[in-house]
Structures are given as structure tokens and as C-alpha cells.
């Protein structure tokens, strides 16, 4: 999926995360993570972000995540939402989830 504009999802509430995705003028994915639990879970959160982007075929983009203690499933949901919002009318293929 192509990132063509800024897409944002989530809130600053506890147990949530704000995810912002924007087009990358360079190639590849850049992840900027801010989290109160970064020391302990930073790698885990990064790998959830990377896997979620890969499943959505996102190859280029700048991802900023401000984590407020979100579970992995919340990070995944916020990344999916942000990507879809940043794409040009992209549709999520639910059948690929089967």
C-alpha cells in the first residue's frame, strides 16, 4: 500500500498510542518510537510495527509512535488505521486475514 499523505490514529489516553505515518522521500521505513516502556518493550513494539507494515505491503514511510502503554494488539490496530488513512482510498483486504 502506498503512503501518499499524513495518516494519524490513536489517542494520548493510557493504554493507547498515537501513530502517525507520512510519505518518505528516502526509500524504506523509518520508525521513531517514544514510549515510557521503551527500555523494556521497545524492540517488541518496533517488531509489531514492522510486521504490521509488511502485512499491508507498506515499503516506504516515516512512522512516529507515541506509546502510552498500549498492548501489541492496540499498536497493530493503530498502525493499520493510520496506514489506511494515509493511503489513497486503500481498502483493507480482510480475506488476507483468513
Amino acid at each position: 500500500m502506498e503512503i501518499v499523505k499524513v495518516g494519524m490514529a490513536g489517542t494520548m489516553e493510557s493504554s493507547d498510542a498515537i501513530v502517525t505515518i507520512e510519505p518518505n522521500t528516502d526509500s524504506g521505513i523509518q520508525i521513531y518510537l517514544q514510549s515510557s516502556v521503551e527500555k523494556q518493550f521497545g524492540n517488541q513494539i518496533r517488531s509489531v510495527i514492522t510486521e504490521t507494515l509488511r502485512a499491508l505491503d507498506v515499503d516506504h514511510g516515516i512512522v512516529r509512535v507515541n506509546d502510552k502503554g498500549a498492548l501489541d494488539c492496540v499498536i497493530r490496530a493503530r498502525v493499520q488505521t493510520a496506514v489506511l488513512r494515509a493511503s489513497d482510498g486503500g481498502q483493507f483486504n480482510w480475506k488476507e486475514e483468513d
Binding site: D72, C73, V74, R76, A77, Q80, R85
Partner: peptide, 14 residues
């Protein structure tokens, strides 16, 4: 859209 993704992922995981 956000709520749909959130509830979907929560039900699959929690």
C-alpha cells in the same frame, strides 16, 4: 475505521 481495527485485533488477541 479505528474502532473496527481495534475491536478486531483485541478479539483476536485478548
Amino acid at each position: 475505521d479505528a474502532a473496527r481495527f481495534l475491536v478486531y485485533n483485541a478479539l483476536k488477541t485478548i
